[in-house]
Amino acid sequence: MRELLARIRVYLIFGVLLVACAVSMLIDRSALRERGGRDYSRWSGALLEFAAPVERLLTAPVDFALGLWDRYVALVDVKHENEALHHEVARLREEALQLREALVASGRLQQIAEMRTAFEFPMLPAEVVGQDASPWFRSILINRGRRQGVRAGMPVINEEGVVGLVSATSPRAAQVLLLLERQSAIDAIVQRSRSRGIVRGLGTGALGFEFVVRGGDVRVGDVVITSGRGGVYPKGLRIAEVSEVPEPGASLLQTAQLKPAVDFGRLEQAFVLLWRSPTMELIYAEEVGTVSEDGVGRSTTP
């Protein structure tokens, strides 16, 4: 028996590892489908936790050198620019004051305040400390995790538009699946015509917008924003601009090419929206202890 085991040991290990990989993939697939991401515990997220500071350490000297160069170049004519900006700031302050007065006078300020409450969510600034180690997947590593309130399923944006979705978290780091990833799909509308469709990542750096041809008014240059109906992203976030619309054929569904609003090649900072839609909160209800008034789930896991 021992001899037989020794003879088939290698095949046995191979088989066990093969099955372990396949089972792990199946479990992870269903976890991603059901919950949209993974919140690692302290131990299972150790690698993610370790990767963030190490990658930051690796990139720090290069960032420092690049920053030094940028600052040096920017110093040329900085005095004149500074004076001009001071004048500009003073002028804009005066203008803002006048506009605010006008708004108060017309009674619209209250409406705007209400709209802000309805649309704005607490945002957490995060630094991009690493990119996906594989060119076949599009994800980034950020230096904010569960301790700062980040949870899987939370949207990530920057000043240009939608960046992606938090797919995994550890106590001090998180992985964000970019909009460009093949698995990514967002319910979206064209801002001008309100035509609805699905924005999908093509895995190549571009995006596709699937829309119904009949009644769908999509033109080159149109801005595509989130519809708020997908149950993941809030409404009105900028996603991309239409770069190419195919000639209408026999198919009912058409796919337009989009240019992402975010320059992913120069992504250094992003903001995590500390918000999960009611749908996501329901999905996470089992593992979330309480949901605070601002809509941020508080995980009970360590």
Partner: peptide
């Protein structure tokens, strides 16, 4: 070698957008 390769693969899965086990396999 199989154990080391699979471990490296799982680590790659953890640090990328892949399914856990995809690169390990």
């Amino acid at each position: 070698g199989m154990l080391v390769s699979t471990a490296i693969g799982f680590a790659a899965d953890w640090l990328s957008g892949a399914l856990l086990g995809q690169q390990a396999l």
